[in-house]
C-alpha cells in the first residue's frame, strides 16, 4: 500500500510536466484543409528556433518562434508547399534554421563525413584482422601434438 501512496505524487508530478510540454505551442490557428494543417505541423517541427539553440519553432515559446509559426501559418494557409516555406526561411535565416540541412558545398562534409569515417574504419579493421605476419604456421610437430591430445580424449 505504501508503494502506491508513494507513487501517486510522482505520477502527478510527471503528468504536470507532460501537460506543460505538450501545451508549449498551441496557437489557435484554423485550417480549412486537414492537409494544410498536417503540413503546418510538420513544418514547425522542421524549423529551428534560431534564438533558442536546440528547439524547433513548434516547441518554443520565444517571441521569434511565435512569429515564425504565424508566418508559416500564413504561407501554408495560402496554399504554399513545403519547399516554398523552407526556402523562405533558409533565405532569411540561413541553413541553420533547417533541422535537416540541405546538401550543398558547405554542408557536404556533414552529409558524407560519417560515411567517410565508416569507410576508413572498415579499411583499418580489415587491415588489422588480416595482417599476414600474424599467421603462425601449423607445423608437423603441432599436428602430432594435436593428434596426441585428441587420442587422450577418447
Amino acid at each position: 500500500m505504501w508503494v502506491r501512496r508513494g507513487l501517486l505524487p510522482v505520477t502527478l508530478l510527471l503528468l504536470f510536466f507532460v501537460s506543460f510540454s505538450s501545451q508549449a505551442a498551441i496557437d489557435a490557428y484554423q485550417f480549412d484543409d486537414p492537409e494544410k494543417e498536417a503540413l503546418y505541423k510538420k513544418l514547425i517541427k522542421e524549423l529551428r528556433c534560431t534564438v533558442c539553440q536546440n528547439q524547433d519553432i513548434g516547441d518554443s515559446n520565444a517571441e521569434l518562434a511565435k512569429d515564425l509559426r504565424r508566418k508559416t501559418y500564413e504561407m501554408v494557409s495560402k496554399g504554399e508547399d513545403e519547399e516554398f516555406v523552407l526556402d523562405y526561411m533558409s533565405q532569411r535565416y540561413g541553413d541553420f534554421v533547417l533541422y535537416r540541412p540541405r546538401l550543398n558545398t558547405s554542408t557536404l562534409m556533414l552529409w558524407i563525413g560519417p560515411f567517410i569515417i565508416l569507410i576508413i574504419a572498415v579499411f583499418l579493421l580489415i587491415r588489422f584482422i588480416r595482417r599476414p605476419g600474424d599467421e603462425v604456421p601449423f607445423t608437423e610437430t603441432d599436428k602430432a601434438q594435436a593428434e596426441q591430445l585428441l587420442e587422450r580424449e577418447e
Partner: peptide, 13 residues
C-alpha cells in the same frame, strides 16, 4: 509593429 519586416530581414536578436 507585428515583426513581419523583421522576419523578412532575418532578424532574430
Amino acid at each position: 509593429i507585428n515583426g513581419d519586416v523583421g522576419i523578412d530581414w532575418g532578424v532574430y536578436g
